[in-house]
Design a protein around this nucleic acid. Sequence first.
DNA 1: GAGAAGCGGAGGATTTTCTTCCGGTTGAGG
DNA 2: CCTCAACCGGAAGAAAATCCTCCGCTTCTC
Lengths: 221, 221
Amino acid sequence: MSHAPEPRAKGAAPAPRRADAQRNRERIVATAHQAFVQHGIGVPMEEIARRAEVGVGTLYRHFGDREALLRAVIAAGVDSLITLSRKETDHETDPWGALCRFVRRCVELRLGAPLSALRPRLKEAVREIPEVAHARATLVELLEPLIDGAQLRGEMRPDVGAGDVLILLGMLVRHECETSEEDKWITMRHVEIVLDGLRARSDSPLPGRPVEGSDSPRWNV
Amino acid sequence: MSHAPEPRAKGAAPAPRRADAQRNRERIVATAHQAFVQHGIGVPMEEIARRAEVGVGTLYRHFGDREALLRAVIAAGVDSLITLSRKETDHETDPWGALCRFVRRCVELRLGAPLSALRPRLKEAVREIPEVAHARATLVELLEPLIDGAQLRGEMRPDVGAGDVLILLGMLVRHECETSEEDKWITMRHVEIVLDGLRARSDSPLPGRPVEGSDSPRWNV
DNA sequence: GAGAAGCGGAGGATTTTCTTCCGGTTGAGG
DNA sequence: CCTCAACCGGAAGAAAATCCTCCGCTTCTC
C-alpha cells in the first residue's frame, strides 16, 4: 500500500472514518461533556450512550473506557476554548468588550466547565495532563493582555487578575449547566451582573489580592 | 409511667436524648449537608458516616434511610437560613448593608445550597415539601423589603428581584462548597464582585425582567 | 454501680455499572 | 445496483458499589 492511514499527528487530522461513525463519535463527545458536567464524571456509560442515541457498544468501540472518553471530552473542550478565545482576541481594539463577549460565549457554549465537575483527587490528575496544562497557559496568555488593556483604559476594576475571571467563568458555566433551556435568560442576566461586578468602580476594593495566572492550581477551568 | 417520651410536636423540642447521642446526630446532619452539596445526594451513606466519625449503624439508628437524613438536612438548612435572615433583617436601618451581610454570611456558612445538588426530578420532590415551600416564602418576605429599601435609596440596581439575589446566592454557595478551606479568601473576593454587580449603576441595564418571588419554582435555594 | 441507651462495623442481599460479543445494518466505491 | 468491510445495537455475564440489619461491647445517667 502506498499510503496507509498514518497514525496522524497530534489531535489534528479528522481520521479516515466512515461518515456516520464520525458523526456518532462527535455526538458522543458532546453528550458526554454535558453529562459529565451535570452529573459528575461518574455518570453511567449507558446514560451517556442513551442520551447520545447510540448503543453502549458503539460508545465502547470509540472510547475503550471511561477515561479515554473523559480525555477526549476534556481535549475537545480545551480546544474550543482556545479557538474561541483566539477568535475574540485577534485584532481586538476593545479589550473590555472582547472579554465580555468571550465570557458570554463561553457560558452559552458551556465551555470550561468539565473540570469543575471533577472530584478534587481526579481534578489533580486531569490537571497534570500536559495538553490541559498547556491549554490553560495559552488561555491565560490570551486573556491577560485583554484584562490589562481593559484595566489600563479604566474600564475594568484594577484589583482582579486572570484567575479571578476564569474562576468566575467556571462558576457561571457550571451554573448554566444546571439550568433548563427555558431559564437560560435568567443565567444570562447573572452573567451580566458578574460582568458589571468586574467593571471599574471607585469604591469597595476587594479583599485579598488578585488571583493571577500563577495561581492556576486553584482553578476549575 | 407518668410521662412517656411524647412524640413531641413539629420539629421543635430537642428530644430527651442522651447528650452524646444528640451530639452525634448533629454532627451527622452537618456532615451530610456538606457531603450532599459536594457529591450530590447520592453519596454513599458510609462516606457520610466516616466523615462524621460514627459507624454506619449509628447513622441508620438516627435516620432510618437516606430520605430521612435528606429531610433532616434540608429542614436544618432551611431553619438556619430563616434564623439568619431574621437576625439580619430585624430593626435594620441599612437595607443594602444588611443584604450584603446576609449574603456573605450565607456563603461562609454554606447555607442554602443543599437544593442545588439535587437532580431536577428530585429537586421537584423536595420543593413540594410544605416546610421547604413555606420557608422559601418566608425568606422572600424577609428579603424583599430589604431589596426594595436598598433600591429606593439608590444603593442597589433597580432591575433585579429577590429571585435574582437568591439564585446568585445559590451559585456562590455551591461554588464555596467546592473550594478548599485555604482558598476561602478567593471565594470571598468573588462574593464581593457579585455584590458589586448588584450595586446601583447608571449604565448597562440587564436583559429580561427581574426574577421575583413568584418565580420561585426556578430557584436552587 | 447497674442498666438503659447508644455505638461500631462485619457481612449478606441487592442494585448498579462495566464491558464484551456477535448477528444484523449501512455507507462507500465500483 | 451490488458487495463487503466497517459499523451498529443491545443482551447478558462479571464485577463493583451500596444498602441496611444485627448483635456484642461501650458509655452515659441516675
